[in-house]
Structures are given as C-alpha cells and as structure tokens.
Amino acid sequence: MTTMVGETMTELGELSRGQLVLRVVVLLGPVVALLASGPAGHWPPWWVIALVVGLAGGFAAFPESPVGVVAILTVLVWWTAALDDGLHPAVLVAATALLASHVAAVLASYGPGEMPVDPALLRLWAVRGTLLLVAVPLVWGLALLLRGEAEEPGIWVVGVATGLVGTVAAGVALTSRQQEEES
C-alpha cells in the first residue's frame, strides 16, 4: 500500500505543468459542485466533504479510472437527497464544475502525464465545453418555466426523449458537415 502511494506520488511529481493544472481542475470540480449546495441552503457535513475530496483526489490521480464516476455520482446523490428545491441557481455552478472536471480529465487522458498539454487540443475542448455549457442554463430556464405547472402524465419521459433526439440529431448534423468538409 505504502509502495503504491509512493509510486503515485512519484508519478504526480513528474507531471507537466499543464497536466498539474488539469489535475487540480479535476480535483476541484466535484468538491465545488458539492459545496455549491451550501448557498442553496444545505451545507454538506464534513464527512461528505471528506468523502468527495478523497474520491476527487483519486479521480485527479487516475483520470481514466472509475473513481471519477463514483465522485460525480456522490455529488449527484447529495444534491438529490439534500435539496427540496433543486432549481436554485447554485445548480448551474455545480453543473459547470462537474463538466469542467470531466473535460479536464478527458484532456489529461490524451497522453502520458509528463506530456505537455497541446494548446490546439485545449482550445478545441474549451470551445466544446462552452457549447455544452450553453445547454445547461437553457434546460435550467425551461425547468424554471415549467415549475408549478400541472404535470401531464409522461411529460418527463417525453422531455428527456426530446432532449436525447435533439442531441442525436445535432450530433449527426455535425458529423455529416465535418465529413463533407474533409472530403
């Protein structure tokens, strides 16, 4: 165990500067998302914070490991369990933090830890991340508009299905346009 921790620390010590920044973002993402529930009225207890910090640390050390899934799901569980009204503006912060953490982990997984982060790749994912973030306030605003309305049977299923179909259609459109440009 001590050896494994030592090896991990050695690997972390050999990270390039860009990779270190990415790992910090990976680490902070779930923690910030968890703490964002505080302004919404429910500060998490210390043991939940400690748990998420530990999981986020593992996520930062091994960006491709399943620890990342556990860390993000823990935050989601806390948001579900602790808040009555989930549409507090702080949810936007949580969504942004989790997305930033995920994108940073993706960027970190493109090559060895000692490899500097490619600026072109960073720009590409910054654009992608920004585009993805645009959807977050839209959905949040839509949810705010629909709050208080009488729920039609199956409205949730229809809404989610519409969202998925929209995403798939956008993806197909983007892919075909990219292929046309390449050809």
């Binding site: 998302a33 989601l76 948001w79 579900t80 808040l83 989930g86 549409l87 507090h88 949810v91 936007l92 949580a94 969504a95 989790l98 997305l99 995920h102 991340g129 993805l132 973030l133 959807a135 977050v136 959905v139 949040w140 949810a143 709050r147 949730w156 299923v157 989610v160 969202g163 998925l164 995403t167 798939v168 993806g171 197909v172 983007l174 892919t175």
Partner: peptide, 25 residues
C-alpha cells in the same frame, strides 16, 4: 431525474448526455 422528479439532476446531466451521445456517434 425521472424517478425522483428532480429537475436539478437533469440540469447537471445535460452536458454528460451530449458528450456521451456525441462520443458514441
């Protein structure tokens, strides 16, 4: 979100849905 009826989960999940879909496509 479907089971609990919490829209916050959907707000958080939107980027992940898009990334997963585009990755699979």
């Amino acid at each position: 979100a479907l089971l609990v009826g919490d829209p916050a989960l959907l707000v958080i999940a939107v980027p992940f849905v898009a990334i997963a879909t585009l990755g699979l496509l």
